[in-house]
């Protein structure tokens, strides 16, 4: 509360531009969920030759230290031990060491693409049919500390908390609490309307991933996909440092 009050009192508008941005776990989680998670939902690929060519398993899509996972086995908002078709949950690597490694499936999409089921068929409630949805989606922790990530930035931004995010070809995050980083230290609070970036380029711009990791659960809100909103999901991750992010 004190942090928020101080922020509201002291924050000034950010100077728009391209920055190195460090995302705190909640921001990392929304970025991962929106920018890459939905692209991994295999129902978007059925019958789509262009997407199948663009997203073959084995393609290099991100930095070498990048691993993105979806797992319904973890307690919290995204805990789905069995999906709504009765498939048991397990940990699915979507990206492993920067390489596209898997997709999220229902039985129909798995059969269609001749891949294994993953336990990701979920319905909002009895009024809807199961479709491919995420469970807990996150970037795995790395090898730097949060302080190391910050100390290596000459001028950048730290996003501590967010209002919301979205992802199509461009991802967006609307920050709630953010600070300038100057000469490796957290500096003044700044108001930012939105940060954006090209999803596929940004995955290659991640150059630092922290050891600190947090997976979050939410009592309100959730993921939206067409008419089925809000579906409880878990998201989070480590602190990640991303270069060349548009800030306005």
């Amino acid at each position: 509360m004190d942090r928020d009050i101080k922020f509201v009192k002291d924050a000034k508008p950010v100077k728009p531009g391209k920055y190195t941005v460090i995302f705190a776990p909640v921001a990392t989680g929304v970025f991962t969920h929106e920018s890459f998670g939905h692209k991994s939902e295999a129902d978007f690929m059925i019958g789509d030759e262009t997407m199948m060519k663009e997203w073959p398993i084995g393609k290099k899509v991100g930095a070498d230290n990048l691993c993105i996972v979806d797992s319904g086995e973890i307690l919290g908002s995204g805990f789905v031990p069995f999906d709504d078709e009765g498939t048991k949950a397990h940990k699915t690597y979507l990206i492993k060491n920067g390489i596209l490694s898997g997709r999220l499936h229902s039985t129909i999409t798995a059969e269609s693409l001749k891949e294994d089921t993953t336990g990701n068929a979920r319905a909002l409630n009895f009024e809807f049919e199961p479709i491919v949805r995420m469970t807990n989606t996150y970037i795995e922790p790395g090898d730097k500390t949060k302080e190391e990530l910050i100390s290596e930035v000459k001028e950048g931004i730290l996003i501590e908390d967010i209002n919301h995010g979205s992802g199509m070809s461009i991802f967006t995050i609307a920050p709630k609490i953010s600070y300038m980083i100057r000469d490796g230290k957290i500096a003044e609070p700044v108001n930012i309307s939105v940060v954006t970036g090209n999803v596929m380029e940004t995955l290659h711009e991640i150059d630092g991933i922290s050891k600190e990791f947090e997976l979050l659960s939410f009592t309100m809100g959730g993921c939206g996909k067409m008419e089925q909103f809000p579906l409880p999901v878990g998201l989070g991750g480590p602190y990640i440092r991303v270069n060349n992010v548009n800030v306005q």
Binding site: H164, S166, M168, S169, I170, F171, T172, V194
Partner: peptide, 19 residues
């Protein structure tokens, strides 16, 4: 047609990408 993810700051400054 699609302006997804933008927002206003607390003071009312607006910014959004347009897809």
């Amino acid at each position: 047609v699609i302006a997804s993810g933008g927002d206003f700051t607390a003071e009312g400054v607006f910014g959004t990408p347009v897809q």
